[in-house]
Write a protein that binds this DNA or RNA. Structure first.
Length: 112
DNA sequence: AACATGACAAGTT
DNA sequence: AAACTTGCCATGT
């Protein structure tokens, strides 16, 4: 990630991290926020995701809330979040990631 | 310029 | 344990 942590780069940083999520894995808003230095700035991450949806290179479907719930599925327009995740090899049940704990990808520990 | 809102999370009551 | 409150940062009104 860019060494610069300017407020304006928050989006860019989030996008970068999301882009680095391995296929078949998911992460959480909090994890990304913590990785960026603001462990409680998860809201911003969500906001960044909203912008990310308009970028085809940012797999926003791999970012869910801490419970593994697909809170942002309503923001997807063309393809539904579940389908995208299923296409990634992530099973979805009741709007929630199955085996969430196992597919969870923590940038802090796995990326550093 | 001030206040409200939003794909969240953690701490308190 | 469940509900409530506070923190976070950028955007929109």
């Amino acid at each position: 990630m860019p060494p610069k942590f300017d407020k304006t780069s928050f989006f860019a940083d989030v996008h970068d991290v999301v882009r680095l999520i391995p296929k078949g894995r998911v992460t959480t808003y909090g994890a990304i926020a913590a990785f960026l230095g603001s462990k409680r700035g998860a809201r911003m991450v969500g906001w960044a995701m909203n912008a990310a949806v308009f970028h085809d290179d940012v797999p926003a479907q791999r970012v869910v809330n801490r419970k593994g719930l697909l809170t942002g599925k309503h923001h997807f327009t063309e393809t539904s979040m579940e389908d995208l995740l299923k296409a990634d090899g992530v099973a979805i049940k009741d709007d929630q990631v199955v085996n969430f704990k196992e597919v969870f990808w923590n940038p802090l520990t796995e990326l550093e």
